[in-house]
C-alpha cells in the first residue's frame, strides 16, 4: 500500500513574524523556513506504518515555490522514498492545494493520504478535509492514534470534549494532531541519502488544475497590542487588584 504525505514549507515555528508596515502582508524575507510541524508528524506516522510492514511506499508531495524542494528533502531524510514538487509561484490557497493533491492522487493511486491538521502560517485547517471531499474518500481529522488493518483505518481523534474513535474505510485522508507521535530527527547519513532519492517536478498546468485565488487579501495588519501590565508584590496585592481594579472576582 502506498501513502502520500503532503508537506508544506512554512516559516519556522519559533519565528515571530513581522507585519509589513504597508499592510501588504508579513515579511518572510530572510526568515528561517522549514517543514510544517504537523507534516513532520505525518511523515513520521507514514514511516512507522512502513516499518510495521503495513505500507510499502511513502511519497512526499509539496506544492509551492522551487524552495519547497527543501522540505521534500527533509521528508526523504526522515525516510520518505521519493518526492513530488508541484511547482508554482502562485499564492496557493487550500482549495487549489487540495485540487493539486487530488490530481497527484489520481496519478499515484495511494490508499492513504496523511496531511497535517493545519499549517502554522495560514492556520486554515482545510486542505485534508477538502482533499477527502474531492476524492470522495472518508476523512479522519485531528488524529492522535492510527491503526491500519483489513482495509480500514481505526483512528483516535482529538475532539472538543475529549477523544473519539472512528473506523474509516480505505482509501482515506487522515490529518495529524500533535500527540500522534514524536517525529525522529533526520540523521546525517539519512540526509545524505535523501539527496539521491528521486524528486519529480510537476506544475499545475500539467496537472490540469486552475490555481487562481478565490480569496483576495486586501490587507494584513498587526493585531492591537495589549498594554503592558504590572508586577504585583504578593498574593494579597494580586487579590486586591483583581477585586477592586479589574473587578473580575
Amino acid at each position: 500500500m502506498k501513502v502520500l504525505v503532503p508537506v508544506k514549507r512554512v516559516l519556522d515555528y519559533n519565528v515571530k513574524v513581522r507585519v509589513r508596515a504597508d499592510g501588504s502582508g508579513v515579511d518572510l524575507a530572510n526568515v528561517k523556513m522549514g517543514m510544517n510541524p504537523f507534516d513532520e508528524i505525518a511523515v513520521e506516522e507514514a514511516m512507522r506504518l512502513k516499518e510495521a510492514g503495513v505500507v510499502s511506499e511513502v511519497v512526499a508531495v509539496s506544492c509551492g515555490v522551487a524552495a519547497s524542494a527543501e522540505v521534500l528533502r527533509t521528508a526523504m531524510a526522515i525516510g520518505a522514498d521519493r518526492g513530488i514538487l508541484v511547482q508554482s509561484d502562485a499564492d496557493l490557497q487550500p482549495l487549489a492545494v487540495a485540487r493539486l493533491l487530488k490530481a497527484v492522487c489520481d496519478r499515484e493511486g495511494p490508499a492513504l493520504v496523511i496531511c497535517g491538521k493545519q499549517a502554522i502560517d495560514d492556520d486554515a485547517n482545510q486542505t485534508g478535509q477538502m482533499l477527502a471531499a474531492l476524492l470522495g474518500w472518508s476523512q479522519a481529522t485531528f488524529a492522535s492514534k492510527v491503526t491500519i488493518a483489513d482495509g480500514q483505518a481505526t483512528v483516535v481523534r482529538e475532539v472538543d470534549g475529549g477523544l473519539e474513535t472512528l473506523a474509516v474505510r480505505l482509501p482515506a485522508v487522515i490529518t495529524t494532531d500533535l500527540r500522534l507521535n514524536e517525529p525522529r530527527y533526520a540523521t546525517l547519513p539519512n540526509i545524505m541519502k535523501a539527496k539521491k532519492k528521486p524528486l519529480d517536478t510537476l506544475d499545475p498546468a500539467g496537472l490540469g488544475v486552475d490555481v487562481s485565488q478565490r480569496l483576495i487579501t486586501l490587507k494584513v495588519v498587526e493585531p492591537a497590542k495589549r498594554s503592558a501590565g504590572i508586577l504585583v508584590s504578593d498574593v494579597a496585592q494580586l487579590l486586591e487588584k483583581l477585586k477592586n481594579e479589574a473587578k473580575v472576582i
Binding site: Q93, P94, L95, A98, D123, A124, N125, Q126, T127, G128, Q129, M130, L131, A132, A133, L134, Q139, T141, F142, E158, V159, D160, R214, L215
Partner: peptide, 23 residues
C-alpha cells in the same frame, strides 16, 4: 470554528468547489 465545524465545513466548501474563510 470548533472541532466539529473545522472537520465539516472544508468538506462542504470543496464539494461546492469554493473556498472557505477559516476562523
Amino acid at each position: 470554528a470548533s472541532a466539529e465545524g473545522k472537520n465539516l465545513l472544508p468538506r462542504v466548501a470543496a464539494l461546492c468547489g469554493m473556498a472557505q474563510v477559516s476562523d
